[in-house]
């Protein structure tokens, strides 16, 4: 009861590849140290579907559709500190390569020219979020407090960043830890 309250952390991947989440898991045995001081709210690790009040929100991936915006806003509303992790969250990244290709051309290329299991058709279920014309970095949609670049940032970089943040220091990356690739 009187134990020091654990820091509550939520994570999500929007238009990303989960590579940043994989890199977080790459801190290996340090995960035990990490779980000694934090607990997870919404994240793919817990499968909790909605974000509650949190200390830190970590967002991977850019904003490419309407659902991404809903998730991102939920994170911003609930997290005291919001962190953009990885190239996609910070610049749009590889998904933003489609930004100068017409959305309809993308759909035709993916769904019409080479048919899928259900033949040549564009998915149109109301459950599916509507895609945007472009992929945006998350800071163009909500205020972001910290940026952790990399594609993905290495496990050591993530560990350094998180320990700085959790222990109340301004996160600081050495030269070799700052990468955009």
């Amino acid at each position: 009861m009187n134990e020091k309250r654990k820091i509550r952390v939520a994570t999500c991947s929007l238009a990303g590849c989960f590579g940043c989440h994989m890199s977080l898991l790459d801190i290996d045995e340090k995960l035990f140290d990490l779980l000694g001081v934090i607990e997870f709210d919404r994240t793919p690790f817990t499968d909790i579907k909605h974000c509650g009040p949190c200390d830190i929100g970590i967002v991977e991936g850019g904003v490419s559709n309407a659902e991404n915006v809903h998730v991102l806003k939920e994170f911003r509303e609930n997290c005291k500190v919001l962190v953009a992790i990885g190239a996609c969250a910070i610049t749009g990244g590889v998904p933003a390569l489609r930004n100068n290709i017409d959305l309809w051309d993308c759909f035709q290329e993916v769904y019409l020219y080479e048919g899928g299991l259900e033949g040549n058709q564009i998915p149109n279920d109301p459950e599916l979020p509507l895609p945007f014309d472009k992929v945006y970095p998350i800071y163009e949609v909500v205020k972001v407090d910290y940026f952790l670049p990399g594609c993905p940032p290495s496990a050591d970089t993530i560990w350094k960043f998180l320990t700085d943040l959790i222990e109340g220091r301004e996160p600081k990356l050495d030269y070799e830890m700052l990468h955009y690739d």
């Binding site: 190239a87 910070i90 610049t91 970095p137 163009e140 972001v144 990356l173 690739d181």
Partner: peptide
């Protein structure tokens, strides 16, 4: 888009940004 660029790591724009400790492009793309 650095992750998709063959010059990444040899790029002076990127290197200048590293030198200046740029964490995000800050402005609207």
């Amino acid at each position: 888009i650095c992750p998709a660029c063959e010059a990444s790591g040899n790029c002076q724009l990127q290197a200048a940004a590293y030198y200046l400790k740029m964490l995000s492009p800050h402005f609207m793309h």
